[in-house]
Simulated scan of single mutants.
Amino acid sequence: MFATQYYCLVASLKEYALDADTKGFDARAIVSGILEEVNRGDAREVRLLYGYYDCENIAALRAGRSAHNPLGNFTREELAEELKAPKRLPEAVARVVRAYADPEGEDAETVDTSRRFEKELFGAYYAACGKAGSRFLREWSAFDRNLRNVSAAVTARAAGRAVEEVVMGGGDVAEQLQRSSAADFGLRGELPYIDAVIAAVNDEANLVEKEHKIDLIRWNEAAELATFDYFDVNAILSYLVRINIVARWTLLDAARGREMFARLLAELDGKELINKE
């Protein structure tokens, strides 16, 4: 099956971003506009990308915290209903919600409810992304999970905590993080960014600077994974990952947010030049 090519939509991505910037950067408005333009299957992939924020919001809501990331697919009220009876969440995520709501129920037979809810929830989310139709989403979610696991493992080790408490999901990288005592967890040959993550976590006392360095690794990976995708959903998802990073830094550090926004626009210009060659 051939992927749908969104020539006009991709050509207008810069305009989407610029329009949002003039009103005070609004990532959610950009996502909504894109969802109106893509087909049903690709819209499902876009929503799955944003399912990460739904998981963050579910965890916060279940723990009684007021935090709610507006980039998620659901409002706080909608998620409250999903926690009672999941109907719209990805099935793997819904299964975890049902299992913890009823530890004696059928779903609890396939979910380890003895572990922290958040660990099982995000593990289920990444498992759902691993089965996505979009190549970008599959590869991005694997990268993002590994990056978060490495960062969490380095932090846990420095604090004297058990690494297995913080690692999400399974796979070779997760297992290596839990069993290796090497400084790089024996992963230098497999994860080219691991030294940069370890340095950011261990050497950077400024938490904002640490997060900025790690987000730059995310940014570069998002761009690289879609290097040869110009007009399909992979290109759109890569763009949205970077939009999410811009949105985060617009809130954390306005100056850095503007810098990343300018970089995104410059990269879109670069892609246009490539397409004209």
Rank of each mutant, 00 (worst) to 15 (best):
L251A: 13
L265M: 12
E120W: 03
E267W: 10
A156R: 06
G105M: 04
S12A: 13
H68I: 00
A63F: 01
R28Q: 12
V208T: 13
I34E: 06
K213I: 08
D112N: 11
D19Y: 06
A85E: 14
V173S: 03
A153K: 01
L71R: 13
D107Q: 08
A124Q: 08
E106F: 13
E82F: 00
R65G: 08
N57D: 09
T227E: 07
A17M: 10
D195M: 07
I198V: 14
N57I: 06
V173L: 10
V111E: 00
Y52I: 02
P192E: 11
N73G: 01
L61E: 05
E209V: 07
Y52W: 05
V10H: 03
E78A: 00
L268S: 08
V201M: 11
A255P: 08
R248M: 05
P103D: 07
Q178W: 01
Y100M: 10
A247Y: 04
L71I: 03
E259R: 14
A162I: 02
D102A: 09
W249H: 11
Y239L: 08
D42N: 11
L264M: 09
D269L: 06
N39C: 13
K131R: 15
N244Y: 08
E56V: 15
A124W: 02
N57P: 07
T227Q: 04
T227I: 09
A152R: 14
A132T: 07
E259V: 08
A80M: 13
D144Y: 11
L187F: 04
Q178L: 04
V166I: 10
V93M: 03
A92E: 14
L273E: 14
E204P: 05
N149M: 07
P70C: 10
R138F: 08
V150P: 00
Y53V: 04
A156C: 10
P103C: 07
V111A: 02
A20W: 00
L79Y: 06
L191E: 05
V97P: 04
I274T: 15
T75V: 06
